[in-house]
């Protein structure tokens, strides 16, 4: 009876020791995974490429014809330009056409993501969190606009924001 008790006791102690060793191994492996992981951020480059695609779509040859872009298209500019919704779920684009005090907006996506960008403008954000910083590109360019039969020169200010893929 004593022998059986001893064997069981030793078995329990062995299980405990092996669990402890396994836990330590997993913790060290986890720390090494974090140390050797490296995130390559290409979202700023993606933002520039997307900006070019949208500009070529809405203003081919430097002429932006607002008469042919329906209201639905102005609120879903990616879809208007032929992109699938699932492709552009992490993007936000906005084009503001400004002329003589009148502003026309073409956009799609969650504009609330812009505040996330504001957080990362703070230099105190640690490097580990930087991979969550959205990719961003803003630009402006002059363009001829056709609107309600009128043709005039306007300034287009655009911004593209790309969220992380996680």
């Amino acid at each position: 009876m004593n022998n059986r008790g001893e064997v069981i006791g030793e078995g329990i102690i062995m299980i405990y020791r092996l669990s402890l060793v396994s836990l330590i191994a997993v913790v060290v492996w986890g720390i090494s995974s974090v140390s050797y992981a490296h995130y390559i951020d290409v979202r700023d480059a993606e933002a520039r490429v997307l900006a070019r695609s949208v500009v070529e779509c809405v203003s081919p040859d430097g002429v932006l014809d607002l008469d042919i872009i329906p209201d639905e298209g102005r609120k879903n500019i990616f879809s208007y330009c032929g992109f699938e919704d699932f492709e552009v779920g992490r993007f936000y684009v906005e084009l503001k056409v400004e002329s003589s005090g009148k502003v026309t907006r073409l956009s799609q996506g969650d504009s609330g993501a812009l505040w996330v960008l504001e957080i990362f403008k703070n230099d105190e954000v640690s490097e580990g969190l930087r991979k969550y910083e959205p990719g961003y590109y803003d630009w402006s360019y002059p363009v001829y606009v056709l609107d309600e039969g009128n043709k005039f020169v306007a300034e287009v200010k655009g911004q593209v924001l790309i969220n992380n893929e996680f």
Binding site: M14, V26, V28
Partner: peptide
């Protein structure tokens, strides 16, 4: 004990090598 601990560390080393 030694054999089992050795097995655990061998697994751990293989997993780490994959990351490195």
């Amino acid at each position: 004990h030694i054999v089992l601990v050795g097995l655990i560390f061998a697994l751990f080393l293989f997993a780490t090598a994959d990351k490195i």
